[in-house]
Amino acid sequence: MNPVSTAVRGLFRSPPLLTFLLVALVWLVASLTLRGFGAYGHLRYLLELSAVIGIVAAGQTLVIIMGGIDLSVGAIITVTAILLPLISPAADPSGIVGIALALAIATGIGLLNGAGAAYLRVPPIIMTLAMATFLQGLLVMVAGGSAVSVTNASVIWLGQARPLGIPAGVILWIVVAISVLLILHRTPMGSRFLALGANPVAARLSGISITRNTLVLYALSGFFSGVAGILILGMNRQGYVGIGDPYLLTSIAAVVLGGTSILGGRGTYAGTIPGAILLVTTTALITIVNASPGWRSIMFGSLILALLLISGREARR
Protein backbone atom coordinates (compact mmCIF):
# COMPACT_ATOMS: atom_id res chain seq x y z
CA MET A 1 0.00 0.00 0.00
CA ASN A 2 1.09 3.53 -0.73
CA PRO A 3 2.83 4.77 2.45
CA VAL A 4 1.63 8.33 1.98
CA SER A 5 -2.03 7.40 1.72
CA THR A 6 -1.61 5.10 4.72
CA ALA A 7 -0.17 7.97 6.71
CA VAL A 8 -3.00 10.28 5.66
CA ARG A 9 -5.57 7.70 6.56
CA GLY A 10 -3.91 7.07 9.92
CA LEU A 11 -4.04 10.79 10.55
CA PHE A 12 -7.76 10.94 10.01
CA ARG A 13 -8.25 8.00 12.30
CA SER A 14 -6.39 9.79 15.05
CA PRO A 15 -8.58 12.52 16.55
CA PRO A 16 -5.77 13.99 18.71
CA LEU A 17 -3.58 14.64 15.69
CA LEU A 18 -6.51 16.00 13.75
CA THR A 19 -7.34 18.43 16.53
CA PHE A 20 -3.67 19.50 16.70
CA LEU A 21 -3.67 20.22 12.98
CA LEU A 22 -6.88 22.17 13.33
CA VAL A 23 -5.31 24.29 16.08
CA ALA A 24 -2.25 24.94 13.92
CA LEU A 25 -4.45 25.90 11.00
CA VAL A 26 -6.61 28.26 13.06
CA TRP A 27 -3.54 29.90 14.59
CA LEU A 28 -1.92 30.31 11.20
CA VAL A 29 -4.97 31.81 9.52
CA ALA A 30 -5.81 34.03 12.49
CA SER A 31 -2.23 35.28 12.76
CA LEU A 32 -2.23 36.22 9.11
CA THR A 33 -5.62 37.91 9.14
CA LEU A 34 -6.03 39.39 12.60
CA ARG A 35 -3.65 42.03 13.84
CA GLY A 36 -2.03 41.16 17.13
CA PHE A 37 -3.22 37.55 17.21
CA GLY A 38 0.14 36.12 16.24
CA ALA A 39 2.11 38.18 18.76
CA TYR A 40 4.15 36.04 21.16
CA GLY A 41 2.46 37.67 24.16
CA HIS A 42 -0.99 36.90 22.84
CA LEU A 43 -0.25 33.29 21.97
CA ARG A 44 1.38 32.84 25.38
CA TYR A 45 -1.73 34.28 26.95
CA LEU A 46 -3.90 31.81 25.03
CA LEU A 47 -1.70 28.97 26.25
CA GLU A 48 -2.00 30.15 29.85
CA LEU A 49 -5.78 30.10 29.58
CA SER A 50 -5.63 26.69 27.91
CA ALA A 51 -3.51 25.39 30.76
CA VAL A 52 -6.31 26.03 33.25
CA ILE A 53 -8.92 24.31 31.11
CA GLY A 54 -6.50 21.55 30.24
CA ILE A 55 -5.85 20.78 33.91
CA VAL A 56 -9.56 20.72 34.81
CA ALA A 57 -10.18 18.59 31.75
CA ALA A 58 -7.51 16.12 32.91
CA GLY A 59 -9.83 14.73 35.57
CA GLN A 60 -12.84 15.18 33.32
CA THR A 61 -11.15 13.12 30.56
CA LEU A 62 -10.64 10.22 32.95
CA VAL A 63 -14.22 10.45 34.23
CA ILE A 64 -15.73 10.61 30.75
CA ILE A 65 -13.55 7.72 29.59
CA MET A 66 -15.00 5.65 32.43
CA GLY A 67 -18.51 6.53 31.29
CA GLY A 68 -19.48 9.35 33.67
CA ILE A 69 -19.44 13.15 33.71
CA ASP A 70 -18.21 15.18 36.67
CA LEU A 71 -20.49 18.19 37.13
CA SER A 72 -18.74 19.27 40.33
CA VAL A 73 -15.41 20.41 38.81
CA GLY A 74 -16.49 24.06 38.80
CA ALA A 75 -17.59 23.93 42.42
CA ILE A 76 -14.38 22.21 43.52
CA ILE A 77 -12.33 24.91 41.80
CA THR A 78 -14.31 27.54 43.67
CA VAL A 79 -13.90 25.71 46.96
CA THR A 80 -10.13 25.50 46.49
CA ALA A 81 -9.82 29.09 45.38
CA ILE A 82 -11.78 30.42 48.35
CA LEU A 83 -10.51 28.10 51.06
CA LEU A 84 -6.83 28.22 50.20
CA PRO A 85 -6.26 31.82 51.35
CA LEU A 86 -8.26 31.09 54.51
CA ILE A 87 -6.45 27.91 55.49
CA SER A 88 -2.89 28.82 54.52
CA PRO A 89 -1.12 29.03 57.88
CA ALA A 90 0.73 32.30 58.38
CA ALA A 91 3.60 30.41 59.97
CA ASP A 92 4.49 28.83 56.64
CA PRO A 93 5.99 31.52 54.41
CA SER A 94 6.39 29.19 51.44
CA GLY A 95 2.66 28.44 51.27
CA ILE A 96 3.24 24.76 50.50
CA VAL A 97 1.22 23.66 53.53
CA GLY A 98 -1.78 25.64 52.39
CA ILE A 99 -1.54 24.11 48.93
CA ALA A 100 -1.30 20.62 50.35
CA LEU A 101 -4.32 21.20 52.58
CA ALA A 102 -6.37 22.63 49.72
CA LEU A 103 -5.49 19.70 47.48
CA ALA A 104 -6.40 17.26 50.23
CA ILE A 105 -9.81 18.90 50.57
CA ALA A 106 -10.37 18.84 46.80
CA THR A 107 -9.37 15.18 46.63
CA GLY A 108 -11.60 14.41 49.61
CA ILE A 109 -14.59 15.99 47.89
CA GLY A 110 -13.89 13.89 44.82
CA LEU A 111 -13.65 10.81 47.00
CA LEU A 112 -17.08 11.62 48.44
CA ASN A 113 -18.45 11.81 44.88
CA GLY A 114 -16.98 8.40 44.21
CA ALA A 115 -18.37 6.97 47.44
CA GLY A 116 -21.86 8.22 46.60
CA ALA A 117 -21.68 6.67 43.16
CA ALA A 118 -20.05 3.41 44.25
CA TYR A 119 -21.70 2.63 47.58
CA LEU A 120 -25.01 4.49 47.44
CA ARG A 121 -25.61 3.85 43.71
CA VAL A 122 -26.48 7.47 43.03
CA PRO A 123 -26.01 7.99 39.27
CA PRO A 124 -22.63 9.78 39.03
CA ILE A 125 -23.98 12.75 37.09
CA ILE A 126 -26.64 13.33 39.75
CA MET A 127 -24.14 12.75 42.55
CA THR A 128 -21.72 15.34 41.21
CA LEU A 129 -24.56 17.77 40.46
CA ALA A 130 -25.81 17.41 44.04
CA MET A 131 -22.26 17.88 45.30
CA ALA A 132 -21.86 21.05 43.23
CA THR A 133 -25.07 22.51 44.62
CA PHE A 134 -24.15 21.51 48.15
CA LEU A 135 -20.72 23.12 47.92
CA GLN A 136 -22.14 26.26 46.37
CA GLY A 137 -24.46 26.76 49.34
CA LEU A 138 -21.85 25.78 51.91
CA LEU A 139 -19.28 28.21 50.56
CA VAL A 140 -21.56 31.20 50.75
CA MET A 141 -22.46 30.23 54.30
CA VAL A 142 -18.86 29.69 55.38
CA ALA A 143 -17.02 32.37 53.45
CA GLY A 144 -19.75 34.91 52.87
CA GLY A 145 -20.24 36.58 49.54
CA SER A 146 -17.08 38.66 49.40
CA ALA A 147 -13.90 37.88 47.50
CA VAL A 148 -10.79 36.74 49.36
CA SER A 149 -7.32 37.84 48.31
CA VAL A 150 -4.42 35.44 48.25
CA THR A 151 -1.14 36.08 49.99
CA ASN A 152 0.25 32.57 49.67
CA ALA A 153 3.66 32.99 48.04
CA SER A 154 3.71 29.72 46.12
CA VAL A 155 0.28 30.33 44.66
CA ILE A 156 1.19 33.81 43.51
CA TRP A 157 4.40 32.51 42.00
CA LEU A 158 2.44 29.83 40.15
CA GLY A 159 0.05 32.37 38.72
CA GLN A 160 2.56 35.06 37.81
CA ALA A 161 6.08 33.66 37.33
CA ARG A 162 7.61 32.96 33.95
CA PRO A 163 10.77 30.92 34.36
CA LEU A 164 12.65 30.97 31.03
CA GLY A 165 9.82 33.03 29.61
CA ILE A 166 7.34 30.18 29.95
CA PRO A 167 4.40 30.80 32.27
CA ALA A 168 4.55 28.60 35.38
CA GLY A 169 0.97 27.54 34.71
CA VAL A 170 1.95 26.11 31.35
CA ILE A 171 4.80 24.20 32.98
CA LEU A 172 2.34 22.88 35.54
CA TRP A 173 0.09 21.81 32.69
CA ILE A 174 2.94 19.94 31.06
CA VAL A 175 3.58 18.09 34.32
CA VAL A 176 -0.14 17.28 34.67
CA ALA A 177 -0.34 16.17 31.04
CA ILE A 178 2.59 13.80 31.39
CA SER A 179 1.14 12.34 34.59
CA VAL A 180 -2.30 11.82 33.10
CA LEU A 181 -0.93 10.30 29.92
CA LEU A 182 1.17 7.95 32.03
CA ILE A 183 -1.79 7.02 34.24
CA LEU A 184 -4.05 6.42 31.28
CA HIS A 185 -1.71 4.57 28.96
CA ARG A 186 1.10 3.16 31.02
CA THR A 187 -0.54 1.94 34.24
CA PRO A 188 -2.95 -0.94 34.76
CA MET A 189 -5.39 1.54 36.29
CA GLY A 190 -5.74 3.48 33.04
CA SER A 191 -6.57 0.32 31.12
CA ARG A 192 -9.11 -0.54 33.80
CA PHE A 193 -10.80 2.85 33.41
CA LEU A 194 -11.03 2.29 29.67
CA ALA A 195 -12.41 -1.23 30.07
CA LEU A 196 -14.97 -0.14 32.66
CA GLY A 197 -16.08 2.69 30.41
CA ALA A 198 -16.55 0.46 27.38
CA ASN A 199 -18.17 -2.55 29.04
CA PRO A 200 -18.58 -2.53 32.82
CA VAL A 201 -20.09 -6.02 32.89
CA ALA A 202 -17.23 -7.67 31.03
CA ALA A 203 -14.69 -5.69 33.04
CA ARG A 204 -16.24 -6.75 36.33
CA LEU A 205 -16.36 -10.40 35.28
CA SER A 206 -12.67 -10.09 34.41
CA GLY A 207 -11.91 -9.16 38.00
CA ILE A 208 -11.83 -5.36 37.68
CA SER A 209 -13.38 -3.78 40.76
CA ILE A 210 -16.00 -1.17 39.93
CA THR A 211 -16.08 0.18 43.48
CA ARG A 212 -12.35 0.71 43.89
CA ASN A 213 -11.85 2.27 40.46
CA THR A 214 -14.84 4.58 40.88
CA LEU A 215 -13.41 5.87 44.16
CA VAL A 216 -9.96 6.45 42.66
CA LEU A 217 -11.42 8.03 39.53
CA TYR A 218 -13.48 10.70 41.26
CA ALA A 219 -10.72 11.37 43.77
CA LEU A 220 -8.37 12.03 40.84
CA SER A 221 -10.92 14.31 39.22
CA GLY A 222 -11.27 16.23 42.49
CA PHE A 223 -7.49 16.48 42.78
CA PHE A 224 -7.03 17.91 39.29
CA SER A 225 -9.88 20.37 39.84
CA GLY A 226 -8.07 21.44 43.00
CA VAL A 227 -4.82 21.96 41.07
CA ALA A 228 -6.70 24.04 38.53
CA GLY A 229 -8.36 26.01 41.34
CA ILE A 230 -4.94 26.91 42.79
CA LEU A 231 -3.67 28.02 39.40
CA ILE A 232 -6.75 30.15 38.77
CA LEU A 233 -6.36 31.70 42.19
CA GLY A 234 -2.76 32.56 41.45
CA MET A 235 -3.66 34.13 38.14
CA ASN A 236 -6.60 36.12 39.55
CA ARG A 237 -5.00 36.99 42.90
CA GLN A 238 -8.40 36.54 44.52
CA GLY A 239 -11.06 33.89 44.91
CA TYR A 240 -14.80 34.47 44.91
CA VAL A 241 -18.00 32.45 44.66
CA GLY A 242 -18.60 31.49 41.04
CA ILE A 243 -14.93 31.70 39.97
CA GLY A 244 -15.00 28.06 38.87
CA ASP A 245 -18.35 28.10 37.08
CA PRO A 246 -17.08 28.73 33.53
CA TYR A 247 -14.82 25.69 33.70
CA LEU A 248 -17.52 23.02 33.91
CA LEU A 249 -18.76 23.43 30.39
CA THR A 250 -15.36 24.16 28.88
CA SER A 251 -13.81 21.09 30.46
CA ILE A 252 -16.45 18.80 28.98
CA ALA A 253 -16.18 20.54 25.60
CA ALA A 254 -12.38 20.22 25.57
CA VAL A 255 -12.64 16.50 26.26
CA VAL A 256 -15.11 15.77 23.48
CA LEU A 257 -13.31 18.08 21.05
CA GLY A 258 -10.26 15.91 21.58
CA GLY A 259 -12.08 12.88 20.26
CA THR A 260 -12.93 11.16 23.54
CA SER A 261 -16.33 9.47 23.24
CA ILE A 262 -18.85 11.08 25.58
CA LEU A 263 -20.38 7.63 26.03
CA GLY A 264 -17.13 6.33 27.52
CA GLY A 265 -14.66 3.61 26.74
CA ARG A 266 -12.65 5.38 24.07
CA GLY A 267 -10.38 8.38 24.22
CA THR A 268 -7.12 9.88 25.33
CA TYR A 269 -5.81 12.93 27.10
CA ALA A 270 -3.56 13.48 24.09
CA GLY A 271 -6.70 14.71 22.35
CA THR A 272 -7.88 16.86 25.24
CA ILE A 273 -4.66 18.92 25.12
CA PRO A 274 -5.27 20.34 21.63
CA GLY A 275 -8.98 20.32 22.47
CA ALA A 276 -8.39 22.82 25.27
CA ILE A 277 -6.21 25.04 23.07
CA LEU A 278 -8.76 24.94 20.25
CA LEU A 279 -11.51 25.85 22.66
CA VAL A 280 -9.64 28.83 24.08
CA THR A 281 -8.67 29.98 20.61
CA THR A 282 -12.18 29.86 19.21
CA THR A 283 -13.51 31.58 22.30
CA ALA A 284 -10.93 34.32 21.83
CA LEU A 285 -11.90 34.62 18.19
CA ILE A 286 -15.60 34.89 18.83
CA THR A 287 -14.89 37.41 21.55
CA ILE A 288 -13.10 39.46 18.89
CA VAL A 289 -16.15 39.21 16.63
CA ASN A 290 -18.17 40.16 19.69
CA ALA A 291 -20.14 37.00 20.41
CA SER A 292 -22.12 36.94 23.62
CA PRO A 293 -21.99 34.34 26.42
CA GLY A 294 -25.26 33.07 24.97
CA TRP A 295 -23.62 32.12 21.71
CA ARG A 296 -20.79 30.44 23.58
CA SER A 297 -23.21 28.32 25.57
CA ILE A 298 -25.11 27.40 22.40
CA MET A 299 -21.87 26.60 20.62
CA PHE A 300 -20.54 24.32 23.36
CA GLY A 301 -23.90 22.65 23.88
CA SER A 302 -24.32 21.98 20.17
CA LEU A 303 -20.78 20.68 20.01
CA ILE A 304 -21.43 18.18 22.79
CA LEU A 305 -24.74 17.17 21.23
CA ALA A 306 -23.19 16.74 17.78
CA LEU A 307 -20.34 14.62 19.10
CA LEU A 308 -22.86 12.63 21.13
CA LEU A 309 -24.78 11.89 17.95
CA ILE A 310 -21.56 10.74 16.28
CA SER A 311 -20.47 8.60 19.26
CA GLY A 312 -23.95 7.13 19.46
CA ARG A 313 -23.91 6.20 15.80
CA GLU A 314 -20.56 4.49 16.19
CA ALA A 315 -21.69 2.68 19.33
CA ARG A 316 -24.71 1.25 17.56
CA ARG A 317 -22.74 -0.09 14.62
Binding site: L249, G294, W295, R296, S297, I298, G301, L305
Partner: peptide
Protein backbone atom coordinates in the same frame (compact mmCIF):
# COMPACT_ATOMS: atom_id res chain seq x y z
CA UNK B 1 -26.15 19.18 26.20
CA UNK B 2 -29.67 20.52 25.68
CA UNK B 3 -29.45 22.50 28.92
CA UNK B 4 -26.40 24.39 27.62
CA UNK B 5 -28.09 25.17 24.33
CA UNK B 6 -31.32 26.32 26.00
CA UNK B 7 -29.39 28.49 28.46
CA UNK B 8 -27.61 30.05 25.50
CA UNK B 9 -30.87 30.78 23.72
CA UNK B 10 -32.29 32.39 26.86
CA UNK B 11 -29.15 34.54 27.18
Amino acid sequence: AGSFIITGIAL
